[in-house]
Amino acid sequence: MPPRAPSLILKEEVIPYLTFSLQDLLCRLPTELKDNLLEIRLRVGRPVMLVFSDMDMVLPGSSSLSRPEMEQCMQLITQSSVYAREEELRQGFITLPGGHRVGLVGKAVLEDGRIRTLKNISSLNIRLARQVVGAADKVVSYLVQDGSFISTLLVSPPGCGKTTLLRDLIRQLSSGIPKLNLKGHKIAVVDERSEIAACYQGMPQNDVGPRTDVLDGAKKAEGIMLVLRSMSPEIIATDEIGSSADVVALEEALVSGVRLVATAHGDGPDDLQERPVLRELLKHGLFGRIVFLSMAKGPGTIEAVFNGQDLKPMFIEHLSIGGGRHDIKTSRCLNTDICYG
Protein backbone atom coordinates (compact mmCIF):
# COMPACT_ATOMS: atom_id res chain seq x y z
CA MET A 1 0.00 0.00 0.00
CA PRO A 2 1.54 3.35 -0.97
CA PRO A 3 1.87 5.80 1.94
CA ARG A 4 -0.97 8.27 2.14
CA ALA A 5 -0.28 12.00 1.84
CA PRO A 6 -0.17 13.77 5.24
CA SER A 7 -2.99 16.04 4.11
CA LEU A 8 -5.17 12.99 3.48
CA ILE A 9 -4.29 11.49 6.87
CA LEU A 10 -5.22 14.82 8.46
CA LYS A 11 -8.56 14.81 6.68
CA GLU A 12 -9.44 11.20 7.47
CA GLU A 13 -8.04 10.70 10.94
CA VAL A 14 -7.90 14.04 12.71
CA ILE A 15 -10.44 16.47 11.28
CA PRO A 16 -13.49 14.28 12.19
CA TYR A 17 -12.64 14.81 15.87
CA LEU A 18 -13.10 18.57 15.68
CA THR A 19 -16.25 20.69 15.73
CA PHE A 20 -17.97 21.42 12.43
CA SER A 21 -16.78 25.01 12.35
CA LEU A 22 -13.13 23.96 12.68
CA GLN A 23 -13.52 21.04 10.27
CA ASP A 24 -14.54 23.42 7.57
CA LEU A 25 -11.70 25.87 8.18
CA LEU A 26 -9.06 23.14 8.29
CA CYS A 27 -10.33 21.52 5.09
CA ARG A 28 -9.94 24.85 3.34
CA LEU A 29 -6.23 25.17 4.21
CA PRO A 30 -3.86 24.91 1.26
CA THR A 31 -2.53 21.37 0.78
CA GLU A 32 1.05 22.52 1.27
CA LEU A 33 0.23 23.70 4.79
CA LYS A 34 -1.79 20.59 5.56
CA ASP A 35 1.13 18.41 4.49
CA ASN A 36 3.52 20.13 6.88
CA LEU A 37 1.25 20.51 9.87
CA LEU A 38 2.73 19.18 13.13
CA GLU A 39 0.26 20.28 15.79
CA ILE A 40 -3.17 21.82 16.15
CA ARG A 41 -3.55 23.71 19.41
CA LEU A 42 -6.96 24.58 20.80
CA ARG A 43 -7.33 26.88 23.79
CA VAL A 44 -10.61 28.10 25.21
CA GLY A 45 -11.10 31.79 24.64
CA ARG A 46 -8.17 32.04 22.25
CA PRO A 47 -7.81 31.45 18.53
CA VAL A 48 -6.82 28.05 17.17
CA MET A 49 -3.12 27.81 16.39
CA LEU A 50 -1.41 25.63 13.83
CA VAL A 51 2.18 24.62 14.50
CA PHE A 52 4.68 23.81 11.77
CA SER A 53 8.28 22.77 12.24
CA ASP A 54 9.60 26.27 11.79
CA MET A 55 6.66 28.56 12.55
CA ASP A 56 3.16 28.75 13.91
CA MET A 57 0.08 30.62 12.76
CA VAL A 58 -3.54 31.32 13.68
CA LEU A 59 -5.97 29.11 11.77
CA PRO A 60 -7.23 31.46 9.03
CA GLY A 61 -10.85 32.46 9.60
CA SER A 62 -11.09 31.14 13.16
CA SER A 63 -12.30 33.27 16.01
CA SER A 64 -11.59 32.49 19.64
CA LEU A 65 -12.68 29.03 20.69
CA SER A 66 -15.78 28.90 22.88
CA ARG A 67 -16.29 26.57 25.84
CA PRO A 68 -19.11 24.60 24.12
CA GLU A 69 -16.88 24.09 21.07
CA MET A 70 -14.14 22.71 23.29
CA GLU A 71 -16.63 20.44 25.03
CA GLN A 72 -17.85 19.15 21.70
CA CYS A 73 -14.28 18.39 20.63
CA MET A 74 -13.76 16.52 23.89
CA GLN A 75 -16.92 14.48 23.30
CA LEU A 76 -15.77 13.58 19.81
CA ILE A 77 -12.26 12.72 20.97
CA THR A 78 -13.45 10.56 23.87
CA GLN A 79 -16.28 9.17 21.70
CA SER A 80 -18.73 10.20 24.42
CA SER A 81 -17.03 7.72 26.74
CA VAL A 82 -14.97 9.68 29.25
CA TYR A 83 -15.12 6.72 31.64
CA ALA A 84 -13.19 4.59 29.12
CA ARG A 85 -10.45 7.23 28.94
CA GLU A 86 -10.04 7.78 32.68
CA GLU A 87 -6.50 6.44 32.82
CA GLU A 88 -5.48 8.42 29.76
CA LEU A 89 -7.05 11.60 31.14
CA ARG A 90 -5.07 11.09 34.32
CA GLN A 91 -1.91 10.84 32.24
CA GLY A 92 -2.92 13.91 30.27
CA PHE A 93 -3.07 12.49 26.77
CA ILE A 94 -5.40 10.45 24.61
CA THR A 95 -4.33 8.40 21.60
CA LEU A 96 -6.57 8.54 18.55
CA PRO A 97 -6.90 5.83 15.89
CA GLY A 98 -3.97 6.36 13.56
CA GLY A 99 -1.64 7.05 16.49
CA HIS A 100 -2.27 10.79 16.73
CA ARG A 101 -1.94 12.06 20.26
CA VAL A 102 -4.10 14.60 21.98
CA GLY A 103 -2.47 16.24 24.99
CA LEU A 104 -4.86 18.00 27.33
CA VAL A 105 -4.89 20.16 30.40
CA GLY A 106 -7.61 21.77 32.46
CA LYS A 107 -8.56 21.70 36.11
CA ALA A 108 -6.97 18.76 37.88
CA VAL A 109 -9.18 16.88 40.34
CA LEU A 110 -6.99 15.55 43.12
CA GLU A 111 -7.42 12.51 45.31
CA ASP A 112 -4.88 11.73 48.01
CA GLY A 113 -2.63 14.35 46.47
CA ARG A 114 -2.56 12.59 43.09
CA ILE A 115 -4.37 13.64 39.93
CA ARG A 116 -7.60 11.62 39.73
CA THR A 117 -8.88 13.18 36.54
CA LEU A 118 -9.01 16.42 34.59
CA LYS A 119 -12.12 18.51 34.19
CA ASN A 120 -12.98 21.78 32.47
CA ILE A 121 -10.45 21.01 29.76
CA SER A 122 -8.98 24.32 28.64
CA SER A 123 -6.27 23.37 26.16
CA LEU A 124 -5.88 20.62 23.62
CA ASN A 125 -2.76 19.88 21.67
CA ILE A 126 -3.35 17.51 18.78
CA ARG A 127 -0.02 16.13 17.60
CA LEU A 128 -0.10 14.46 14.23
CA ALA A 129 1.63 11.12 14.14
CA ARG A 130 3.95 10.48 11.29
CA GLN A 131 5.84 7.28 11.16
CA VAL A 132 9.05 7.64 9.17
CA VAL A 133 9.57 4.24 7.61
CA GLY A 134 13.26 3.87 6.89
CA ALA A 135 14.40 6.38 9.53
CA ALA A 136 16.89 3.87 10.95
CA ASP A 137 18.32 2.83 7.56
CA LYS A 138 21.47 4.88 7.98
CA VAL A 139 22.48 3.81 11.45
CA VAL A 140 21.38 0.22 11.56
CA SER A 141 24.57 -1.08 9.95
CA TYR A 142 26.54 0.32 12.90
CA LEU A 143 24.35 -1.53 15.35
CA VAL A 144 24.75 -4.99 13.88
CA GLN A 145 27.89 -7.05 14.15
CA ASP A 146 28.36 -10.48 12.59
CA GLY A 147 24.67 -10.88 12.03
CA SER A 148 23.65 -10.06 15.59
CA PHE A 149 22.23 -6.90 17.08
CA ILE A 150 24.15 -4.98 19.73
CA SER A 151 22.23 -3.29 22.57
CA THR A 152 21.77 0.35 21.65
CA LEU A 153 20.99 3.56 23.49
CA LEU A 154 19.65 6.56 21.58
CA VAL A 155 20.48 9.88 23.23
CA SER A 156 19.25 13.34 22.31
CA PRO A 157 17.49 16.46 23.56
CA PRO A 158 13.67 16.41 23.16
CA GLY A 159 12.19 16.73 19.69
CA CYS A 160 15.22 15.42 17.84
CA GLY A 161 13.65 12.23 16.60
CA LYS A 162 14.70 9.66 19.21
CA THR A 163 11.34 7.95 19.28
CA THR A 164 10.97 8.07 15.50
CA LEU A 165 14.34 6.39 15.13
CA LEU A 166 13.53 3.87 17.88
CA ARG A 167 10.22 2.97 16.24
CA ASP A 168 11.82 2.28 12.89
CA LEU A 169 14.65 0.37 14.51
CA ILE A 170 12.08 -1.86 16.21
CA ARG A 171 10.29 -2.40 12.90
CA GLN A 172 13.51 -3.36 11.12
CA LEU A 173 14.81 -5.63 13.88
CA SER A 174 11.43 -7.33 14.07
CA SER A 175 11.24 -7.91 10.33
CA GLY A 176 14.91 -8.84 9.96
CA ILE A 177 17.42 -7.17 7.65
CA PRO A 178 18.59 -9.57 4.91
CA LYS A 179 21.23 -7.10 3.72
CA LEU A 180 23.00 -7.28 7.08
CA ASN A 181 22.29 -10.98 7.47
CA LEU A 182 20.14 -10.19 10.49
CA LYS A 183 17.20 -12.47 11.15
CA GLY A 184 13.91 -11.18 12.53
CA HIS A 185 13.88 -10.95 16.32
CA LYS A 186 11.11 -11.32 18.88
CA ILE A 187 10.81 -7.85 20.35
CA ALA A 188 8.86 -6.76 23.40
CA VAL A 189 8.09 -3.06 23.50
CA VAL A 190 7.39 -1.52 26.90
CA ASP A 191 5.51 1.55 25.76
CA GLU A 192 4.82 3.52 28.92
CA ARG A 193 3.63 6.67 27.19
CA SER A 194 2.05 4.97 24.16
CA GLU A 195 4.41 6.90 21.94
CA ILE A 196 6.32 4.11 20.23
CA ALA A 197 3.52 1.91 18.93
CA ALA A 198 0.72 4.44 19.60
CA CYS A 199 -1.79 1.81 20.69
CA TYR A 200 -5.48 2.54 20.30
CA GLN A 201 -7.51 0.04 22.31
CA GLY A 202 -4.51 -2.27 22.47
CA MET A 203 -3.83 -2.24 18.73
CA PRO A 204 -0.53 -0.69 17.61
CA GLN A 205 -1.31 2.09 15.15
CA ASN A 206 2.26 2.27 13.90
CA ASP A 207 3.98 -0.49 11.99
CA VAL A 208 6.27 -2.06 14.56
CA GLY A 209 7.03 -5.28 12.69
CA PRO A 210 5.68 -8.83 12.64
CA ARG A 211 7.51 -10.18 15.70
CA THR A 212 6.75 -7.31 18.05
CA ASP A 213 4.64 -7.52 21.20
CA VAL A 214 3.58 -4.27 22.82
CA LEU A 215 2.88 -3.76 26.50
CA ASP A 216 1.01 -0.48 26.46
CA GLY A 217 0.84 1.97 29.34
CA ALA A 218 2.78 0.02 31.97
CA LYS A 219 5.52 1.59 34.06
CA LYS A 220 8.89 0.81 32.48
CA ALA A 221 10.52 -0.99 35.38
CA GLU A 222 7.48 -3.13 36.11
CA GLY A 223 6.75 -3.65 32.41
CA ILE A 224 10.27 -4.84 31.59
CA MET A 225 10.01 -7.52 34.29
CA LEU A 226 6.58 -8.54 33.02
CA VAL A 227 7.56 -9.00 29.37
CA LEU A 228 10.72 -10.77 30.49
CA ARG A 229 8.59 -13.35 32.30
CA SER A 230 5.75 -13.61 29.83
CA MET A 231 6.91 -13.05 26.26
CA SER A 232 10.44 -14.56 26.11
CA PRO A 233 11.73 -11.64 24.04
CA GLU A 234 15.11 -11.53 22.33
CA ILE A 235 15.14 -7.75 22.39
CA ILE A 236 13.36 -5.37 24.77
CA ALA A 237 12.66 -1.84 23.57
CA THR A 238 11.64 1.09 25.74
CA ASP A 239 11.54 4.85 25.67
CA GLU A 240 12.97 7.57 27.92
CA ILE A 241 14.97 5.77 30.60
CA GLY A 242 15.07 8.14 33.53
CA SER A 243 15.06 6.51 36.95
CA SER A 244 17.35 4.14 38.75
CA ALA A 245 14.49 1.60 38.92
CA ASP A 246 14.57 1.52 35.11
CA VAL A 247 18.31 0.83 35.20
CA VAL A 248 17.84 -2.06 37.63
CA ALA A 249 15.16 -3.60 35.42
CA LEU A 250 17.35 -3.24 32.33
CA GLU A 251 20.22 -4.95 34.16
CA GLU A 252 17.90 -7.78 35.07
CA ALA A 253 16.94 -8.14 31.41
CA LEU A 254 20.57 -8.15 30.35
CA VAL A 255 21.34 -10.94 32.82
CA SER A 256 18.57 -12.95 31.16
CA GLY A 257 20.41 -12.67 27.87
CA VAL A 258 18.05 -10.15 26.33
CA ARG A 259 19.41 -7.33 24.23
CA LEU A 260 18.12 -3.81 24.69
CA VAL A 261 17.24 -0.81 22.64
CA ALA A 262 16.23 2.30 24.53
CA THR A 263 16.30 6.08 24.46
CA ALA A 264 17.44 8.57 27.06
CA HIS A 265 17.53 12.31 27.39
CA GLY A 266 20.90 13.97 26.96
CA ASP A 267 22.47 16.87 25.08
CA GLY A 268 25.52 15.21 23.63
CA PRO A 269 28.53 12.99 24.22
CA ASP A 270 29.70 15.24 27.09
CA ASP A 271 26.52 14.40 28.99
CA LEU A 272 27.47 10.73 29.20
CA GLN A 273 29.57 11.36 32.27
CA GLU A 274 27.54 14.23 33.69
CA ARG A 275 24.03 12.82 33.90
CA PRO A 276 23.76 10.31 36.76
CA VAL A 277 21.42 7.94 34.94
CA LEU A 278 23.52 7.87 31.77
CA ARG A 279 26.65 7.36 33.83
CA GLU A 280 24.98 4.50 35.64
CA LEU A 281 23.94 2.87 32.37
CA LEU A 282 27.47 3.08 30.98
CA LYS A 283 29.10 1.93 34.19
CA HIS A 284 27.23 -1.34 33.94
CA GLY A 285 28.09 -1.68 30.27
CA LEU A 286 24.44 -2.18 29.37
CA PHE A 287 24.76 -0.73 25.91
CA GLY A 288 27.25 -1.63 23.20
CA ARG A 289 26.32 1.29 20.99
CA ILE A 290 25.25 4.84 21.74
CA VAL A 291 23.66 6.97 19.03
CA PHE A 292 23.49 10.74 19.46
CA LEU A 293 20.89 12.82 17.71
CA SER A 294 20.58 16.59 17.43
CA MET A 295 18.80 19.39 15.63
CA ALA A 296 21.93 20.46 13.77
CA LYS A 297 20.40 19.77 10.35
CA GLY A 298 16.78 19.91 11.45
CA PRO A 299 14.97 17.33 13.55
CA GLY A 300 16.47 13.88 13.27
CA THR A 301 20.12 14.62 12.63
CA ILE A 302 22.36 11.74 13.62
CA GLU A 303 25.40 13.32 15.23
CA ALA A 304 27.50 10.33 16.08
CA VAL A 305 27.59 6.67 16.95
CA PHE A 306 29.76 5.70 19.92
CA ASN A 307 31.02 2.35 21.02
CA GLY A 308 29.51 1.80 24.47
CA GLN A 309 32.46 -0.15 25.84
CA ASP A 310 35.35 2.22 25.26
CA LEU A 311 33.25 5.33 24.56
CA LYS A 312 35.11 5.98 21.33
CA PRO A 313 33.23 7.44 18.40
CA MET A 314 32.77 4.99 15.55
CA PHE A 315 31.29 7.57 13.28
CA ILE A 316 30.66 11.28 13.41
CA GLU A 317 28.59 12.89 10.74
CA HIS A 318 25.48 14.98 10.38
CA LEU A 319 22.93 12.73 8.79
CA SER A 320 19.23 13.31 8.47
CA ILE A 321 17.04 10.34 9.25
CA GLY A 322 14.51 11.73 6.80
CA GLY A 323 10.87 12.56 7.32
CA GLY A 324 11.45 16.08 8.59
CA ARG A 325 8.61 18.30 7.60
CA HIS A 326 10.80 20.70 5.74
CA ASP A 327 13.72 19.89 3.54
CA ILE A 328 16.79 18.98 5.50
CA LYS A 329 19.91 19.04 3.44
CA THR A 330 22.50 16.45 4.29
CA SER A 331 25.92 17.88 3.97
CA ARG A 332 29.38 16.45 4.18
CA CYS A 333 28.05 13.07 3.32
CA LEU A 334 30.91 10.93 2.21
CA ASN A 335 29.16 7.67 1.68
CA THR A 336 26.35 7.99 -0.83
CA ASP A 337 24.85 4.75 0.41
CA ILE A 338 23.84 6.23 3.71
CA CYS A 339 22.78 9.60 2.40
CA TYR A 340 19.24 10.10 1.34
CA GLY A 341 16.13 12.04 2.33
Binding site: T78, V82, Y83, R116
Partner: peptide, 10 residues
Amino acid sequence: VLGLSDRKDQ
Protein backbone atom coordinates in the same frame (compact mmCIF):
# COMPACT_ATOMS: atom_id res chain seq x y z
CA VAL B 1 -24.49 13.12 31.98
CA LEU B 2 -24.13 9.93 29.95
CA GLY B 3 -20.55 9.27 28.89
CA LEU B 4 -19.30 12.55 30.31
CA SER B 5 -17.89 11.56 33.66
CA ASP B 6 -15.77 8.88 35.28
CA ARG B 7 -16.89 5.33 35.84
CA LYS B 8 -18.13 5.72 39.38
CA ASP B 9 -20.33 8.64 38.47
CA GLN B 10 -21.69 6.90 35.37
